[in-house]
């Protein structure tokens, strides 16, 4: 464990807590993409399959349970909670996210480190996580008024993978044979997808204006 990975995990945890806070306290998911939440639930379900077979540390297992629990409960809230589901803008959240799942699965079947069931699904989760934010970014561009909590959620979610990139550089420099091109490229693509959001987020923060993405 290094400071970059810890910062990444804490940023990721913060993003999930901000979203749960928003949904649980103000009982609203306005501006939040259910498609992205469903993709993230699939990402964690396929990434953490080894939770029962391999144990790294209490921290590792605990965080996996938190990410699994929070992502599935957010999907449950947005689909079935009587008050929250009414605030979900179904008409705007129309990204065909299943069109993201299939190519990621095919790519994982083609490019992976080992051709085993767990490894292919784990690689699939890396590819899927890289593009999972797309429905949310599209939704943000459609809904003009982005409330602070949703903006902070996306900002923290984008930031965590950036810390992971620093973690991979650190591990590459300090651990012999730590080379994982698939993880690195997927993580880089994921972070780059946030580039324009980050630009507009900082602009709104600097000029103390409401966050508005260009249509």
């Amino acid at each position: 464990m290094n400071i970059f990975r810890l910062a990444g995990d804490m940023t990721h945890l913060a993003s999930v807590l901000v979203l749960l806070l928003k949904i649980h306290t103000i009982k609203s998911c306005a501006g939040v993409s259910l498609k992205t939440q469903e993709l993230y639930a699939i990402v964690f379900a396929t990434r953490y399959l080894d939770i029962f077979t391999s144990f790294y540390s209490i921290y590792n297992t605990l965080m996996k349970l938190i990410f699994l629990g929070s992502s599935f409960s957010i999907v449950w809230y947005m689909r079935y909670h009587k008050t929250v589901r009414r605030t979900y803008d179904r008409e705007q959240d129309t990204f065909r996210h299943w069109f993201l799942v299939l190519p990621c699965l095919l790519l994982a079947l083609l490019i992976h480190e080992k051709f085993t069931f767990l490894e292919v699904l784990w690689t699939f989760s890396l590819y899927l996580e890289a593009v999972a934010i797309l429905p949310q970014l599209v939704l943000l561009q459609r809904t003009r008024n982005i409330d602070n909590l949703t903006g902070q959620y996306v900002f923290l979610l984008g930031g965590y993978r950036g810390f992971y990139i620093l973690n991979w550089i650190y591990r590459y420099l300090t651990e012999p044979h730590f080379v994982h091109w698939i993880t690195w490229i997927a993580g880089l693509v994921q972070t780059l997808l946030y580039a324009d959001f980050f630009y507009y987020y900082f602009q709104s923060w600097k000029n103390n204006k409401k966050l508005q993405l260009p249509a």
Partner: peptide, 10 residues
Amino acid sequence: WPSSSSKDEL
């Protein structure tokens, strides 16, 4: 070579 795993990451 034995590549040190990244599976210990979240």
